[in-house]
């Protein structure tokens, strides 16, 4: 019924009391928002909590939503702010994370590399999985500013202008951060070539 309706129209319908409109919005955006948060914070449990919190904030703030604003801009601004708060809290607590680098240097290994994992150590069956993990680590190694821009641009296909609106910086700054993020990732993923060569078949 509402499958072809624009997000903004669905939000307006929800403001008028149409719950079904919100359900469509939830179905449409839950997965991409979850993956954005997951790649930002790198932790599934935290990502689930933040996803829940993000949509709760959408519900609470639904009355204040204006039709002129793009719904995805609003939604990802909420999600991004939650992620930034979360990473700041994490830094403050200085809890050891399995995915976090052990030393201050970005090129050091992580705890995940040291702990003998049954999956990774046992057979290394799936080179693809290893590659994915490598990429996830490379993304996590990006600075917060670069990571958010990179995730929105590459995984959500957002235009630079919209990213600038979400992040709250000029568009040129967004482009600059994106360029640095790509350079860094290419350096980090140099190993990818070796792994790809080592992969069976």
């Amino acid at each position: 019924m509402f499958n072809d309706t624009a997000d903004e129209d669905l939000m307006v319908m929800y403001q008028k009391g149409e719950v079904r409109a919100f359900e469509v919005l939830l179905t449409r955006h839950r997965k991409p928002v979850y993956n954005f948060i997951l790649r930002f914070v790198g932790d599934k449990e935290t990502a689930e909590d933040l996803l829940q919190e993000a949509f709760m904030r959408v519900i609470k703030g639904a009355e204040a939503y204006k039709r002129q604003a793009k719904f995805t801009t609003w939604l990802y601004t909420i999600a991004r702010n939650l992620c930034v708060d979360q990473t700041r809290r994490r830094k403050h607590r200085k809890h050891a994370s399995l995915d976090a680098p052990m030393d201050a240097g970005e090129e050091s290994g992580t705890l995940m590399d040291v702990i003998p994992g049954s999956e990774m150590a046992s057979d290394r069956k799936s080179v693809n999985k290893q590659l994915h993990e490598q990429m996830q680590r490379a993304i996590a190694a990006l600075s917060e500013d670069q990571r958010e821009v990179f995730l929105m641009r590459e995984f959500l296909d957002m235009p630079f202008k919209q990213i600038a609106d979400v992040v709250g910086v000029p568009e040129n700054t967004v482009k600059s951060r994106m360029r640095y993020a790509l350079e860094k990732l290419r350096l980090e993923l140099d190993e990818y070539k070796d792994l790809a060569k080592a992969a069976p078949g």
Binding site: F22, L26, E48, M56, H132
Partner: peptide, 21 residues
Amino acid sequence: WLSLPDEDPPERGLAELLAAA
């Protein structure tokens, strides 16, 4: 990185969200 698969979000908390909505 575009080959990274998207993960499905868990169903946990979905009912709560819909009730609040």
